[in-house]
Design a protein around this nucleic acid. Structure first.
Lengths: 160, 160
DNA sequence: GGCACACTTGACGTTAACGTAAGGGGCATC
DNA sequence: GATGCCCCTTACGTTAACGTCAAGTGTGCC
């Protein structure tokens, strides 16, 4: 039952993908409008195949890491278009490498921000341990957050 | 000469900070409008001190890691406001921890994206080595990018 | 045939984060 | 005293990424 999601011949309605990836139909149509997706049609209705679904995954991940739809489109195009000759591919390669450098810089930024926040946490924890140890959030609260995240992962487990 | 940047009593004009952090005056006034900054005044003119400058650094880093100005403001407020009692601090602590979890998730996303792009690079490199080894970008190009990044770092070296 | 439901297109509305233009004050300098 | 430069406020414009609403089509079901 989870295995027919794997069957490459399986297709998806717009709603299927919306539910699976928690986006709205409007968003998918918008991505299509912008040239990031081009699902087949059955009459008027859109029919998404596995390739479309994979592209959507890339789009959403791209968004999460802060890329604009235009940038994502460019990358997707590069992925596709590279039968247009070796020169094209060389250009794509360069752009990919640039993106990697940018992402690495961004990751360093994030690590810095995390450190900063951790410093703040430490200070506050020390203060609270001193003043009001009863107010210190304990393992119980923390577990809730972790559980929430794990649930989220479970939801999308088959989507990976 | 770089050392008077360190002197805590030193103040800055709006242009000083704009040049140093490569933002526009409009942006600084906008942040003030939104309550993220509140520099002193000398007549009508804004006068920024070291605390304002530090806040600006945090704002810009927050932006780079994808936080909205509203979220950044919330964090900054939490940093300040924590003389408002231990209860407040406990709430701040919780929010800080949430932010940390979110940032860690985002970093994992970025790592995933980097891996994906690296995979694409590898495939393209193999293809090119096969077909047109002359088109392979070489150390020279790569160094340029690195140099650009190092220059950027050097520009902001005293800002760290 | 009438109803519900999912899909479609088209068009206007919305929010965040500024950009930009208009109009004006303060101070140095030629 | 006119020019130039930096600062100010007010206010309207802009872009991205959708949200929302209107109006229409097609499909199954009772």
């Amino acid at each position: 039952m989870t295995s027919d999601l794997r069957r490459p011949e399986r297709t998806f309605t717009i709603r299927n993908l919306c539910v699976e990836f928690r986006v709205t139909p409007r968003a998918l149509r918008f991505y299509e409008d912008k040239g990031l997706l081009y699902p087949a049609r059955e009459g008027l209705n859109r029919v998404y195949n596995h390739r479309d679904r994979a592209r959507l995954q890339l789009i959403l991940r791209g968004k999460r890491v802060g890329l604009s739809l235009a940038e994502i489109r460019e990358i997707l195009d590069l992925y596709d278009e590279n039968d247009g000759g070796a020169a094209q591919m060389a250009k794509s390669l360069k752009k990919f490498r640039e993106r990697i450098l940018a992402l690495e810089a961004q990751r360093d930024d994030i690590d810095g921000a995390i450190e900063q926040l951790r410093g703040g946490c430490d200070r506050m924890e020390r203060q609270l341990t001193q003043l009001r140890p009863d107010l210190l959030p304990r393992a119980a609260d923390y577990d809730q957050v972790l559980r929430a995240r794990l649930d989220g992962v479970a939801d999308n487990a088959h989507a990976e």
